[in-house]
Design a protein around this nucleic acid. Sequence first.
DNA 1: GTTTATAATATAGATGTCTATATAAATTCA
DNA 2: TGAATTTATATAGACATCTATATTATAAAC
Lengths: 141, 141
Amino acid sequence: MTLPIRSFVGFQLVQAHRAHHKKAEEQLGKLGLRAGQEIILMMLWAEEGLTQARFVEQLGVEQPTISVVLQRMEKAGLLSRHQDSQDGRVWRVYLTAKGQALEEPVMQIWQHLEKQLLNSFTEAEQSLLRRLLMQVQTNFA
Amino acid sequence: MTLPIRSFVGFQLVQAHRAHHKKAEEQLGKLGLRAGQEIILMMLWAEEGLTQARFVEQLGVEQPTISVVLQRMEKAGLLSRHQDSQDGRVWRVYLTAKGQALEEPVMQIWQHLEKQLLNSFTEAEQSLLRRLLMQVQTNFA
DNA sequence: GTTTATAATATAGATGTCTATATAAATTCA
DNA sequence: TGAATTTATATAGACATCTATATTATAAAC
């Protein structure tokens, strides 16, 4: 008798993420973004001139992933990359006007997503879910 | 002042899923599987002869996704597909010996993943996390 | 100072995922 | 019965993601 898939918390994590990702794609698509790109933008809205290494360490993705995503976002006119004058290996990322202009609508979408995600949750449940998800990351680190 | 990404539960969900997915890929890769394929197998271990439509409704993925994944798994010798004798549009999926033989090692990997995911969680926290993740899915449905 | 090692980024090839569309079989309906 | 609709699956093209490897620039070591 194998345990049913549904009984695994890991499966529920996958399914919850899938649901969130689908909604994010749907909403962000209206702005011409793909899910994941808005995270890059959020980091740049907080601080420009980031290097690939910074994205990699902050997001936990592999370097080639960021390399490709940044290239596509540059091609889409969302950001630009300039070689560092001190260290020729380093390329720093800056927002274009188009990338800057997306801050308001993207944040609105994320706040709406967050609201939907947490619908019917008590305050205690909200902070608990955040804490447990952070613990999960620690557990896998 | 934009809210930091980290403050969103949605972001923590994405990051927790990424951590889980990476570990799953790493472990399942040893068996020649990709993350996601083992879910297909689990469903088949519970019941053979499933149709694409069943996978789609159970997993919440789109039909073309399942179509492609099943083709790759068939090519990998994990399963076979046979046209339904009653309805020529329907193709039913069956396990090969190779697919059957993976039940033990895959379940062991998932049990290990589950253990790691829930490391340091109390019983109450475990069931709460499961419940909250299920509620998230409902909220996005 | 030239060679070797390290570090930052890019490329290649694969997979799961999506949307849009095509194909083929069954069903409905006039 | 024959055309139109619905249903099940496949294909095309795109993107985020991975591992493995290449390229390029800096740093270290002899």
